[in-house]
Design a protein around this nucleic acid. Structure first.
Lengths: 222, 222
DNA sequence: CTTTTAAAAAGTGCATGCACTTTTATGGTT
DNA sequence: AACCATAAAAGTGCATGCACTTTTTAAAAG
């Protein structure tokens, strides 16, 4: 837990934003888990800054839905029920399905080719520890590219938010078995995008997310 | 603009939350418009409180997407482009369509009857100034009830957020002509819910929102 | 009269203080 | 050991101070 604040002098970025980023990483990586208490004062001391920027960062995380706080109480990392996880996936199915639909007629061939190359590389590579890192990175990139290609900024932002909101579960939930399936599903989406077929793209993406949904919700029996 | 802070002693609610609420109302009512500057210090003085709770309230509004702020600059009320408005409606079509689908098999008959009564009342009443108030209130209630009845808390929260994000436009965009149409569309949704027909409910709700979309985006040529 | 520029005013970001609330530690009682 | 009361420690909400940045003002120059 020795992630530290990068304190450049003359920095254009707010301290509160750096702290927000740092804490988000701690939550997404599992370094901070559901139920953990995050005291503003203690954290300020730990980071060697005053309470103000920590206060702001925590408030952001509360708005993001990662923390909860009652008045006069210390914020707590949220616990997701299996119903929550299910619901988040349901929404992702809608939003990312729509994004794929819109992207089918808009996505440029270069990005498409690049994504396909990434998928092929992962497909042929041995599935060791480093591979997992690559997969996570590629998967994020895949979904983000399609969200962007939808042409709707709002849609993209919503998709990013909903993906973040359950990414903390990735670590424990993914099984090696599921990976090759996921890759196959990605390829199906890429095929549909290549065909410039909106409906096919929506369906393929929705299938993909539904598969993850089943996996995650299973592993997650409250 | 003389809305004041209700300062009860021994209050269980945070000052920052009250201020957030107050500012939200000012934005949604049109009292504060796109491009307006909202200075933390000035506002604190105006409200007779310190900068801290104002600071927190403004940060919330920034996260909500109503304000924008660059470092060291005063926050500004966001300007929505017509593309933004269009995109927000596109998302509402997805989310509220889904909510209606889910609500069709879950909504209790009592709420349903109550909504129908509200619609009928508005249908038969003379369309004067007071009527407009009633309409706005009823419309909100209608959409919220269905979002709730979806059974998905996340879906409900998302729907509320997206509805808020363009409600500031209501004042100038609604024309008396459109009201009776809207009411008819609401009735169609209620019929589908009564029939316990998910697909019909989704379609009816999506039609309704698409009609608003056309109206709003037209009135809103950047 | 418009443009430039420099000083004054006001603003934000972060640090800190204080009152009041919650949490933790402590010691007696059963 | 488990339970309660209570004092000490730590925490949050809001106020305020200060350094530095942006905005406004007003005077000087063209």
């Amino acid at each position: 837990m020795s992630t530290t604040l990068q304190i450049d002098e003359n920095d254009q970025v707010r301290l509160s934003d750096k702290i927000h980023q740092l804490l988000l990483e701690r939550i997404l990586s599992g370094a901070m888990q559901a139920g953990d208490i995050v005291a503003e004062k203690k954290l300020a001391l730990e980071l060697g800054v005053s309470r103000s920027p920590v206060h702001d960062a925590l408030r952001d995380l509360i708005k993001d839905g990662f923390l909860q706080q009652a008045k006069n109480r210390r914020p707590v990392v949220c616990r997701l029920s299996s119903a929550d996880v299910f619901d988040i996936f349901e929404i992702r199915i809608l939003l990312e399905g729509e994004a794929s639909y819109k992207a089918a007629t808009r996505m440029d061939r270069v990005t498409l080719a690049e994504l396909r190359k990434g998928a092929n590389f992962l497909f042929e590579t041995e599935k060791d520890q480093a591979w997992l890192e690559h997969w996570a990175q590629y998967d994020d990139h895949f979904h983000l590219c399609i969200a962007k290609a939808s042409g709707s900024k709002r849609l993209m932002q919503d998709i990013i938010r909903h993906r973040l909101s359950h990414r903390a579960l990735n670590i424990q939930a993914e099984s090696p078995y599921s990976f090759s399936n996921s890759l196959q599903e990605h390829m199906a989406v890429l095929d549909a995008l290549d065909n410039r077929d909106p409906s096919q793209a929506r369906t393929a993406m929705q299938n993909h997310i539904r598969e993850s949904q089943a996996l995650f919700v299973n592993k997650f029996s409250d």
